[in-house]
């Protein structure tokens, strides 16, 4: 059932996920994702009325540590891993003027 997800849908989610797809990739991924969604649609046959959702296998409440200052990671060591830094901060290309 190829209409579970269209080429247009795949192009849209690729953009949302900040991925760029060529024509061949768009075609191939659309078919492959439709196959998986078809299989996943098995769940449609199940009666799920009134069934609560489980988002976590072992429910625990909010977990807070004691409000005591502790040393964090060394800033220089962390920044040393970045592609580009300036004045102790991460540097990125210009954001102004981009399409939202």
């Amino acid at each position: 059932m190829a209409d579970r997800i269209s080429r247009h849908d795949v192009a849209h989610v690729a953009w949302l996920a900040r991925l760029e797809l060529g024509d061949e990739e768009l075609e191939r991924f659309t078919t492959q994702l439709a196959d998986v969604l078809d299989y996943a649609a098995e769940v449609e046959a199940l009666n799920l009325d009134g069934v609560p959702a489980t988002s976590h296998p072992y429910p625990v409440g909010n977990v807070l540590r004691d409000d005591v200052p502790e040393p964090g990671l060394d800033r220089a060591e962390v920044l040393a891993q970045a592609p580009e830094t300036e004045a102790g901060q991460f540097r990125v290309p210009p954001v102004r003027g981009e399409a939202p």
Partner: peptide, 27 residues
């Protein structure tokens, strides 16, 4: 631009299976 950089980085950095799962999950 920043967004172009994000897209170019992720497109070059992830393999096909990771892209499939990211798109499936995003969908």
């Amino acid at each position: 631009g920043a967004t172009d950089m994000n897209v170019a980085t992720r497109t070059a950095g992830f393999g096909d299976e990771v892209k499939r799962r990211i798109m499936l999950g995003t969908f």
